Simulated assay, not measured.
Amino acid sequence: MELDWGYFRELFGGLFRHDDGVGERRAYLSSERPTAAEHLVELEALRKREQIPAGGYVEDDEQLWRIMKLYGLSRVSDLLIEGFCTQGEPPTEFSATGERAGIRGGVTGGVKSDELAVHTEFFSGIGLTPFDHAEAFSPFHHEIFTVVQDPSATSVTVEEVLWPGFWFGDLLFSRAGVRVRAPQHLIDATAATTSTLYFTYCREPRRTDDLSHGWGSNSQWRTCFSRFYSDEEGLHLNWDGEVDIAVDPPEPRAGWSEDEMEPLHQRRELLLHRCLVSNPLPADESDRYPYGDRLSFTSAEWPLRPESFVAMSNTK
């Protein structure tokens, strides 16, 4: 395989060898920036959404290796984000030790500006395009980090953009982190900041879940990057997913019975926010499988409007 898919794995490992403060991390990433930019050019085919072969990509498809290679770069991003997000005060119903490993932001979490600058400089410098989408809250574009619970509010609004998101062409590489103001019936502060964050390698001490978890030290790097696109036809969540949940009822996931399926509104909420944002949280909220679902729609609002859903095939 001509594509050097292991480079970003090596870059990730290098962050642990250059971990003596923000200055050392900045110097290390700065020295790697030209090489990282060259490797990102190898992935140009991912910048636009394509029709996927029926049955998905097989091991000798170079597109599959590109998707796995981009996953390695996303791990670098998650690790740096984890470094500049500071832990907030845990909600009162959690123990001080973080029993659920879910205490992450609450309503008081903050961001270390020097660590944030390292992240922004590196990803801007290798060819990704930063954005904040500050004009309106969009769960497609925004990761909720903190919530100001406001019973007088009638909608969800962005109070502050805490870190930028990044585009790779039409492909959403990472969302912008935000503090929002919201009524509890739309965004519950505890649920939105402590429930499991899916499609994410790490946000310690918040519990996260991605498809690399539970695999060995080599196998985990064959994880595919989860592709979320925005283009002229709409917004496309988890484009490689097998089951279109714009349709009600959707086809059952392969190997799953109807009794095993979560409620459709929760599947849509989880795929859109990458976590659950409504209380009460279901007992199995940390054991969901959103990776098989996909959803296309025309407007990134919360709550979603069913009339904005677009049933769309992702296969050739």
Score class of each variant (00 low, 15 high):
Arg9Met: 09
Ser257His: 04
Ser230Gly: 02
Leu237Thr: 00
Val22Asp: 06
Asp248Ile: 03
His18Lys: 10
Pro90Arg: 12
Tyr229Ala: 04
Gly110Glu: 10
Phe145Thr: 00
Arg47Gly: 13
Leu162Gln: 13
Met68Ala: 09
Tyr28Asn: 01
Ile67Glu: 13
Glu42Gln: 14
His141Tyr: 15
Pro263Val: 02
Pro280Glu: 11
Leu43Tyr: 08
Gly56Ile: 09
Leu15Lys: 03
Ser230Asn: 07
Ile126Lys: 09
Gly14Pro: 05
Phe140Met: 04
Glu82Met: 14
Thr35Phe: 04
His142Cys: 08
Glu115Ile: 01
Thr193Gly: 06
Thr108Gly: 04
Val156Asp: 04
His39Arg: 15
Gly234Glu: 06
Leu79Thr: 06
Ala96Arg: 13
Asp284Gly: 01
Leu80Tyr: 03
Leu64Pro: 07
Arg47Lys: 15
Asp114Gly: 00
Val111Asp: 02
Phe16Val: 04
His119Gln: 10
Leu128Ile: 07
Glu32Tyr: 01
Pro290Met: 10
Gly165Ala: 09
Phe145Ser: 03
Gly56Phe: 06
Ile67Arg: 14
Leu29Met: 07
Phe145Cys: 02
Arg66Asn: 02
Val178Ser: 11
Asp209Pro: 00
Gly106Ile: 06
Trp256Pro: 00
Arg49Asn: 04
Pro205Asn: 13
Ser308Pro: 05
Cys85Leu: 14
Pro282Trp: 05
Glu301Tyr: 00
Thr97Asn: 04
Pro306Val: 10
Glu262Arg: 15
Arg227Trp: 01
Thr154Arg: 13
Glu269Val: 02
Gly105Ile: 01
Leu271Tyr: 12
Asn279Lys: 12
Val58Thr: 14
Cys275Ala: 12
Phe131Gln: 04
His133Thr: 00
Pro263Trp: 04
